[in-house]
Design a protein around this nucleic acid. Structure first.
Lengths: 152, 152
DNA sequence: TTGATTTACTTGATATTTGAAGTAATTGGC
DNA sequence: GCCAATTACTTCAAATATCAAGTAAATCAA
């Protein structure tokens, strides 16, 4: 039995936030140390790696959960590193399609290997069944954020 | 049975990161809209609220998981808003002790009420038992980051 | 069509965060 | 006590992020 003043959700959120921050810091500093990169750059490249035909700026900004201005900035930086290319969409001349260059694909592949290894290590204390259970439950939380079809 | 290429930990991390980012964005924009504040400011004030005698800059930076430079910046901003005060520690003239002002305490109390309401709403789709289970499992992950007594 | 509206981005001003380097105070060993 | 190492902060530059305009292209209704 749990008293209502246990602040159960609040405590869960605090721990969620702490764990995510700890992991993100670790990943970020490892990516910087080993590859001169960062988590935001890695995340953007990861999206492009899954989309062989490339993605529009808007799609990128939705997927990495950041603003359009920030995507413009990130893409410009990655472009000047030679990891991504951009071109005006044939369909819609307002849109820009971004894709990985061959160099970018190799660069990402190398990082992804290490990246997964670090993550596996960080979650290794958690039994596999627990990892799956947590994944499922987080799925429920995530659903809360899907825009509903009810508002204007 | 799960194949090794399921990238179980990786998927868990991606979902953890997504959920945390979604929640943090929501909280941040609500704090800004309703109180002209932000999540980092709220978190810092929350630490001080629990520490009636105040905290040193270094303690703050450990607790909110951010760098010293950032704490200097945050405290300066909160001080100029009148929410915190700082003074040189009597024990150690290098150290600065930060504490809430009466205004800061009221300001935090008002925010904390709304803040918990928003969080409860965001986790409401998850049964209480699931919230507790997740909290426990995240505790295991968090432990991984405790500095060990073995390295120099 | 054409003009109003919406959409896809970019820009520019700020805000925030990090990491490295600098300053002052404290501590530990001699 | 005295100097070298350590500690607690601050500062500064660079990396990221947000938000509010601004621009051009597409869409849609009259």
């Amino acid at each position: 039995m749990t008293a209502p003043s246990d602040h159960e959700s609040l405590r869960l959120w605090l721990r969620l936030f702490t764990c995510t921050t700890l992991i993100a810091r670790e990943l970020g500093s490892a990516l910087k140390r080993e590859f001169g990169s960062s988590l935001p750059r890695f995340d953007l490249l990861a999206q492009l790696d899954r989309a062989p035909k490339g993605l529009r700026m808007g799609e990128l900004s939705e997927r990495i959960l950041t603003t359009g201005g920030n995507v413009t900035w990130l893409v410009r930086a990655l472009e000047s590193d030679g990891y991504v290319s951009r071109r005006v969409s044939a369909d819609d001349k307002r849109a820009t399609v971004v894709r990985l260059t061959p160099t970018g694909r190799r660069h990402f592949a190398a990082m992804a290997r290490s990246h997964e290894g670090w993550i596996i290590a960080m979650f290794s204390a958690l039994p596999s069944a627990d990892r799956r259970a947590m994944h499922t439950r987080l799925g429920v939380v995530k659903e809360q954020f899907r825009p509903t079809r009810s508002s204007p």
